[in-house]
Amino acid sequence: MADWQIDLIKVVFIWVWALLIAVVMTWVERRASAMMQDRLGPNRAGPFGLLQPLADGIKLFTKEDIMPEKARKILFLLGPPLFALPAFSAYAVVPFGDKIVLGGKEIILQVSDVNIGFLYVLALGAIGVYGMVIGGWASNSKYSILGGLRATAQLISYEVPMGLALLTIVLLYGTFSLREMVLLQQGTFLGFLPNWGIFKQPLGFIIFLVAAYAEANRVPFDLPECESELVTGYHTEYGSMNLGLYLFGEYVNLGTLAAITVSLFFGGWTLPYVDMSKFLGPVAYGVASFMVFFIKQAFFLFLFVWVRWTVPRFRYDQLMGLGWKALIPLGLVNLFVTALLVQLTI
């Protein structure tokens, strides 16, 4: 097969895989919420309610598109695609496995190992903000506008600590490529710990995780869409698949953030203390690395649900205070300390 055919297969496979994770995540979220609140959750459609996401999808597809008369028409239609496009595309640079040998050809398990690496994810995340702002503004309803404003202020505030946390990681590894970072995390650190980013950058990991929850609009930072004040925030006026794109894009974002967390701080597809490529065949190794990555990612996806039912929602001034008065100074101090340690150990 030619290279471009392999690329095309990888693109289609990973695109569908990233979306499938998001679809199953909607089911996991509802079932796990039910479990934590001691109720049943969706259990009618298919075994354990597994077909529930499919039923939801069909419902969204067959609803009527409603355009509020006060809405700015073009911007109203532009909002959802502008949010969903970057969300769906961000998974392209995630290394979801090491490599697999098929038909004598070595294929790296990553859609594209571009040299800008996770800057691509950050850039797309920043574009996604426009989708929320435009959607909230164009709806011309007070709930939407307040939700859109809150979303903007929150997302841009937490982009800074996230950027600072990632800056220290770049300083440590000297590369943007997520694949090279995972390769640098093999082996052990200080003789007994796995050589993972979390042990070298514990503070950076905490900053990154908090910022990731804020970027994904998850509890405890779900102020742009808090139900008790703003109905559902910036997508109050949307219905049908326009709403579906917003909801779906958020779940795809969760998958991407979990994948980035795993590849930056938890060694990606590598297992601690064990080198899988030594005793597994080339094909089995590829599948095993894929599974290891997925299991780690699944844990962080579950953590999103877990935190949702553990921590109450912040107040808006607390949210801004945490971002600007705690996380950003901490990120700057972390940058100093890391730079100093790198300089001392060189």
Binding site: D7, P81, A84, L85, F88, S112, N242, L245
Partner: peptide, 18 residues
């Protein structure tokens, strides 16, 4: 070029969904 393919796929599916 693979990234462009990926973006094209996203655009196609989003338009198809709408």
């Amino acid at each position: 070029e693979t990234i462009v393919m990926y973006l094209g796929m996203s655009l196609l599916v989003v338009l198809a969904m709408l």
